[in-house]
């Protein structure tokens, strides 16, 4: 027989013996500290309240708002169509299903920016991407969108554009649908996706 077949047989055997010694990689998927630090320093992980308001008004289907405050506060007031995932249930399976879905941008917010920021770091450490923090949280939301301040005459023109947008947005958020504690909250319907998708198949 051909000498090449001896060589090929040997190569295949060596490769197969190699498989005995390798171990399947465990997918705990935790980000190394250096990468986490790098990502924390990126300013692009923050979004402003104006950006969020614009996305909400445009009814962006890829936007998912996550309220990280406790459920009691969420029931009093929250952003329209926001989902409540209290910060202490982030690591549970029900909490996890919202994060890391392809094609979805998750915006986290709390009362101020701090809690949401912590949650962001936790999620990033679990190697979940496409999460953003709303800078300033709901306090900032009230100050900018719900009660926008009139710009001074000396301010640049862009402030006036911003002000006009905020006024219009204010109308959108407070005029048509007022979300208050007295109103009965509608249940938010969100299409859930299993996190680790397994291929469907079969012959």
């Amino acid at each position: 027989m051909n000498r090449n077949y001896y060589i090929l047989t040997a190569i295949m055997l060596i490769l197969a013996i190699g498989t005995v010694f390798i171990h399947e990689r465990k997918y705990t998927s935790e980000l190394p500290a250096s990468e986490l630090l790098w990502d924390i320093l990126q300013p692009s992980r923050f979004v402003t309240t104006d950006q969020v308001a614009k996305r909400i008004i445009e009814k962006d289907p890829s936007l998912l708002l996550i309220d990280v405050r406790p459920a009691s506060e969420y029931n009093k007031f929250s952003l329209p169509n926001a989902v409540n995932v209290p910060f202490d249930s982030i690591e549970t399976a029900t909490g996890q299903q919202y994060f890391g879905n392809p094609g979805t941008k998750v915006v986290l917010f709390g009362d101020d920016g701090i809690l949401a920021n912590r949650v962001w770091i936790l999620l990033r450490r679990l190697d979940l991407k496409n999460n953003y923090v709303m800078r300033g949280g709901l306090n900032e939301w009230i100050e900018t969108i719900i009660q926008p301040k009139r710009p001074k005459q000396t301010d640049p023109e862009i402030s006036f554009e911003q002000y006009n947008f905020r006024r219009a947005a204010r109308l959108y958020f407070t005029g048509a649908k007022v979300v208050t504690g007295n109103m009965k909250k509608e249940k938010v319907v969100f299409k859930k996706r299993k996190r680790a998708a397994v291929a469907a198949g079969g012959c």
């Binding site: 291929a199 469907a200 198949g201 079969g202 012959c203």
Partner: peptide, 9 residues
């Protein structure tokens, strides 16, 4: 694709 070849399906 995460899936394998098949015909009869």
């Amino acid at each position: 694709s995460g899936r394998e070849l098949g015909i009869s399906g």
